[in-house]
């Protein structure tokens, strides 16, 4: 699979995590591809942390309104039934447990469910934005990312980069595997049949417990 196929594969699998009526926040990048793969009978409400409970899709050029943008600053729209909210209200929704799931990218994630995705000291400094609040408040924190960074594992025994959150990740979805974060450790629940379980283990620094009901990703 090339990069874009990998992203589409991951987004498609993430889309199966949502129930009809869920209120979800999607991080920038790969996570924003997820709605395109939702089953027809599943409708979710998207939170845009800068100020929409019910964000819509990007408008065509004729309908660009610079007072309605997405969390990356690009023109957006409000969905039917959506509402505009200020930052305090937005994060009240997030921390208050009103968001069912958030999907985020990661630089590293570890077997305790710790996540690092906001800074590489001395190098890359995007900042945490709303990620720390989302991790603290969302019921399900799903990490959607490529399994490795140029071949080196991103799923580690212990994160080495500064953390975004402690023990909040509930699920990891990559182009190789679906992994649940449990009290016992990381449980391999589903695998991409293009890879063997041994190959997945090799690409993962953390220990993987193979689920009794392990199945291929559909």
């Amino acid at each position: 699979m090339d990069k874009s196929e990998i992203k589409a594969y991951i987004a498609k699998r993430v889309a199966k995590e949502f129930k009809d009526g869920d209120f979800v926040n999607l991080g920038i990048g790969l996570p924003t591809m997820v709605p395109a793969y939702l089953p027809e009978d599943v409708h979710v409400t998207l939170e845009a942390e800068l100020g929409m409970a019910g964000a819509g899709s990007a408008p065509d050029e004729a309908h660009v309104d610079w007072e309605v943008v997405d969390a990356g600053g690009a023109p957006s729209s409000v969905a039917i039934g959506g509402a505009f909210i200020d930052s305090a209200t937005s994060f009240g929704l997030i921390r208050g447990g009103h968001v069912d799931a958030t999907v985020l990218g990661a630089l590293q994630v570890d077997q305790k469910g710790n996540l690092a995705n906001w800074i590489i000291p001395g190098k890359m400094v995007p900042g945490m934005g709303g990620a720390m609040d989302l991790c603290a408040g969302a019921s399900n924190v799903i990490v959607a990312m490529e399994h490795t960074q140029k071949g080196s594992p991103k799923i580690l025994k212990e994160c080495t980069l500064p953390l975004t959150t402690q023990t909040c990740v509930t699920k990891i979805i990559t182009e190789m595997a679906v992994i649940d974060v449990t009290d016992k450790g990381l449980v391999l629940k589903e695998y991409n049949p293009e890879f063997t379980v041994d190959q997945i283990k090799e690409a993962t620094e953390a220990e993987l417990i193979v689920a009794d009901d392990l199945k291929p990703i559909e």
Binding site: L50, F84, D86, S87, A88, S90
Partner: peptide, 12 residues
């Protein structure tokens, strides 16, 4: 009055 999600941090 602020339209859209331009309100963000302005209110606080």
């Amino acid at each position: 009055f602020i339209h859209g999600d331009a309100r963000n941090f302005n209110t606080v």
